[in-house]
Amino acid sequence: MRDEPGEISCDLVAGMLSEHWGFRVGEVVYAPVGSGSHHWIAAGVDGPRWFVTADRLDPSGSWMGSTAEQMKGTIESAVQAAKELADSGCEFVVAPLPDRTGHLVREVPAGWMLVVFPYLQGWSTSDGAWDDPAEREQIAGILGRLHAATPPRTLQRWDFAVPGRDVLLTALADLDRPWSSGPYAEPTRLRLSAALDYLRARLAHYDTLVREIEASDDPWVVTHGEPHSANVLRTNDGRMRLIDWDTVRLAPRERDLAAVLGGPTDVLPAYQAQAGPISPRTAALELFRVWWSLAEIATYVQLFRRPHTDSQDSRESWQDLTTYVPG
């Protein structure tokens, strides 16, 4: 997120790190990176640094169909699952650091969930594309190891629901009058109006794929959920480390494979070397690609149906929406 939240100051983050993690913090700066969550980099007075993430619990009681309590439980189970994976030998997992009482998540007074990670020197890409064939092959092998791992005890099960589908359907039924919730509300309405038949067809196509995959008896595995290039940190020791584990779920393996297969280089052998002689299902790969586009559309429609301003985050969200909804 590019826009720093007004509810959480750098001083508040420093205070939380001192009070609950026992860290001696010298400086905290906001890091305008990623999407969805807000981030800070904290430096200790004696050298170490930490990467701090905060997610807002929706004060209205729901966000994309989840209550605030459900959001809290989802975050807590996801970070615990990541910690268990790291402790079990999955060194490619960047796991959160427990506080002095063993908690991995702390709720700050304003209704935000705060998680602390070690700060690792490295770099990531600005988008999710796997353009480097060698890197695509390497991440395929990592996913093979992940999918062969024993599921953590706290791991939640993925379901086929498209987050925010009800929000999207409500919006599609309300295209006959202007929207006035902010500067991108009316452009969103016009965009959806022009693509109404396309969107209805995509929803119907997704439902057809769901029926096919639900009938399958293929085993579900531990999946990251978003193993795109921007969620991989290339550390200075030459390794790849997967970050952003809030989407970790027990799910069909194609949930991850949809992000890495299909490039000019066949990386399936690298995956199979770790996961076994597995052949991904074409219909399942298509299901997750369609799911992703519908979930992204619903997220941006939800955003622009609510009061919003012309911020940098809003502008980037609008550009993203236009990539998923044809003009």
Rank of each mutant, 00 (worst) to 15 (best):
S88K: 03
G327W: 00
A295S: 13
T323L: 14
H20S: 11
T67W: 01
A284W: 08
W112L: 05
L192A: 05
A295Q: 11
S193F: 14
P96G: 00
D127Y: 07
E286N: 07
I297K: 06
L257Y: 09
S126D: 12
S317T: 05
T125L: 05
S37A: 15
Q272R: 15
R202T: 10
D131C: 12
G225D: 01
L168H: 04
E91P: 07
E212L: 14
V108L: 14
A230L: 09
L146C: 01
P277G: 03
A31H: 12
S88T: 06
V222Q: 00
E226H: 14
G327S: 10
T322A: 10
R202C: 11
D11Y: 08
S124T: 15
I213P: 06
S124A: 15
L268T: 05
A270F: 12
T235W: 08
V33L: 12
A43F: 10
Q272F: 07
P178D: 11
E137A: 15
S60F: 01
Q272T: 13
T247Y: 04
P32Q: 08
G22K: 09
D11P: 01
Y300G: 03
R202V: 09
W318P: 05
W63Y: 14
R253N: 00
N236Y: 11
L114K: 04
P307V: 00
H205W: 12
L294P: 05
L12Q: 14
L242M: 13
P96V: 03
W50Q: 10
V210E: 07
A54P: 04
V210W: 07
L303A: 13
M240N: 15
G276I: 09
L146Q: 01
E212V: 13
L199W: 09
W130N: 10
E254K: 10
P219W: 03
V290P: 02
A134L: 15
